[in-house]
Structure formats: C-alpha cells, structure tokens
C-alpha cells in the first residue's frame, strides 16, 4: 500500500457485512461480487497495458543487452556492455545533472504556483468557468506557438528580455551561454505550460473538501491563511502527493522544450541543457544510432525516476502527514466506524 493515505485503516465495504448476514445463493453471489469486482475494475487497465506498455518495456530490455543499431537491427548479445558504455559517457552524467537542475527549477515553483492559483480559484468567484478555463489555455495552445513566443523572449542577441534589460542599463543574460540561465529559461517554459493544468487538479481536490470544516474553523476564529494550512492542505494531501509525483515523473522526462530551445535541439555546443531524454533520443536517432545504448539509457532513467519518485513520496508523505489536528480527527472517525 503505497500512495494512498496508508494510516487510515480502510474499513472496506465488504468485510463487516459478510459475517453478519444469513447465507444463501445471493449471498454467495454477493461474496464473489465483493471478491472479484476489484480485479474486474482494474483489469481493463492492466490488459491493455500488457499489450501496449509491457511489450515496449520488454522489447527495450531485450534491445539493451544487444548490439543493436537503429537501421541495422539486432547484433550480438553483449550483456551489460551498453550499460557500461553509457555510464562511462561523460555526456550522460552531464545530462543527468542538467535534468535534475531543470527539474528543481521547474517542479518546486510549479507546485507552489499551482496550489496558489487553485486557492484563488477556490474562492467564491463570479463567472468561475471563465477563470478556471482561462488558466488552462497554455496547455491547449500548440507548442509551435508557445515555442515561437519563448524563442522571441529568450533569444540572446535580439530577444525581448535582453532588450528590456539593456534598455534599463543591465547586462544581457546569456540564455544559451550560461548553464544556469538556460535551465531557468527551459524551466520557465515548462512551468508555463503546466501551472494551470496542475492548478485545476488541485482545485478539483479543494472543491471536495467539506465546507463545514471551514465553517467550524471560522467559528474557531481561524483566518484565511490559517484555514488554508490547517484544513485545505491536509485535506488534499493525496492530491498533493499525486501532483508532486506526476510532475516529478514529467520533470525528469523534459524533452520538447529542450528540442525547441535552439535550432539544433541537442542542448547546445556544451550540452549545457541537454536532458537525459534528449540524450536518449540523440543516442538512438542522432549520430550514434545505437538503439541498444539508447535502451540502456531508457532503463537507467526509468530506475532513476522510480527511485526519485519513491524518495519524493516519502518526503511528501512526511510533510503532509505532519499537518496538524486533522489527521487524528479522521483516524478516530474511521476507527469508530469499523
């Protein structure tokens, strides 16, 4: 049991009733109903995933232990040589550092901005639809439009931002020359695209928070900010975990923004903003044409994401379960029920 609120002892719908009632055919049927239904409900996902997800995964694993070029196809079995090659490649490590750095610049501000926007949208607004849909527009507009705009903002010599900086007497920022600056620029593009999206996810969760909790808090004399931290945040804990984990996974797979950041799309001459997924792409489709090594990169990245995801989960879990009062209250509730 991982991501769900684990300390809640789920009373389950079936268990208590099963013992108490009279036996009979319908009862037995009901028992099977209770036992099998959960599996039945999750089966569409797993069946389809087995076909469309597991096959590529297995294929990738198979490819990764062979000499395998994109067009030449399968070569000799070489064990873990591809993994060793990749781990010995300095650009792989550079790409990992870039990925983590861009991830830090994107995910953390993103979650904070998104939750703030969601809190704003959760107010009792006039024409709420308008506001809610408005924030989602960056997600909707085709990347070509967005990249065109950001290209004009972040161009080194004739970009809007540097022009403004020069006008007010400051030095230009080398968006494509300075490593950190390039990470900030890419993270900005990522944040821009996803902040409204994540805000709406938070909003949906906030809307499900029982309003009487707020009423009680108001009676207790809690202010807005206090309400937010002592009611909203603990109540939407599972959603916070969700957003943190999905944006971690997404953040470690940043691809499009890097491809669009300059004309070559491979992270610049120093590979200063090449992410690991772009490295993977370059390994398979670029000059190396080694599908074998690219598959090894894919598996390494996969493992890394799982590890970071787990760490993330544990940390988020700790932070959000440290939220005050609410948790114990819930616990006593559910305890009373079962």
């Amino acid at each position: 049991m991982a991501v769900l609120t684990p300390q809640r002892s789920a009373p389950g719908s079936g268990a208590p009733q099963r013992e108490s009632r009279r036996l009979g055919f319908s009862q037995r049927l009901g028992r099977w109903d209770v036992k099998l239904s959960p599996y039945l409900y999750i089966s569409p996902f797993f069946i389809l995933f087995a076909i469309t997800g597991l096959f590529p995964l297995g294929y990738t694993a198979f490819v990764s232990v062979h000499e395998w070029s994109l067009l030449g196809g399968q070569g000799d079995f070489i064990g873990l040589q591809n993994f060793a090659d990749v781990l010995a490649h300095p650009t792989f490590w550079k790409s990992l550092v870039n990925t983590l750095s861009i991830f830090v610049f994107s995910s953390i501000p993103q979650v904070i901005i998104a939750i703030t926007i969601a809190a704003l949208l959760d107010q009792n607004l006039r024409s709420a639809t308008f506001w809610r849909m408005g924030v989602l527009i960056p997600y909707v507009v085709a990347p070509v439009a967005v990249s065109l705009i950001f290209g004009r903002l972040f161009a080194d010599q004739y970009g809007l931002i540097n022009s403004v900086l020069n006008t007010i007497g400051l030095d230009s920022i080398a968006w494509h020359g300075d490593r950190i600056a390039s990470h900030v620029a890419i993270a900005t593009m990522v944040n821009y695209r996803w902040m409204g999206y994540n805000a709406l996810i938070f909003l949906a969760a906030m809307q499900a928070v029982p309003r009487d909790l707020y009423e009680a808090a108001v009676i207790d004399g809690a202010g807005r900010v206090r309400q937010f931290f002592s009611i909203t945040v603990p109540q939407i804990r599972a959603t916070i975990i969700f957003v943190v984990i999905t944006s971690t996974i997404g953040g470690l797979q940043i691809f499009d923004e890097v491809r669009l950041f300059d004309a070559t799309g491979l992270g610049g001459p120093d590979r200063n903003w090449m992410t690991t997924v772009v490295f993977l792409y370059d390994t398979a489709w670029g000059n190396q044409h080694s599908l074998g090594r690219a598959s090894a990169v894919a598996w390494l990245l996969f493992l890394l994401i799982v590890v970071i995801g787990l760490v993330n989960f544990l940390v988020t879990q700790r932070i959000s379960s440290a939220g005050p009062t609410k948790k114990s209250k819930r616990k006593s509730n559910t305890g009373g029920n079962s």
């Binding site: 970009g159 494509h176 004309a263």
Partner: peptide, 18 residues
C-alpha cells in the same frame, strides 16, 4: 556575428543588419 544558423537570433539578424 556569432549566430546559430536557423536559430531565433539568426532569423532576427537578417532584420538587424547583423
């Protein structure tokens, strides 16, 4: 001019007598 061909600055460079 220090421009990357096909990049944004390069395209703008045509208009800016780069």
């Amino acid at each position: 001019a220090g421009l990357e061909q096909w990049g944004d600055d390069w395209v703008a460079g045509f208009q800016n007598d780069a």
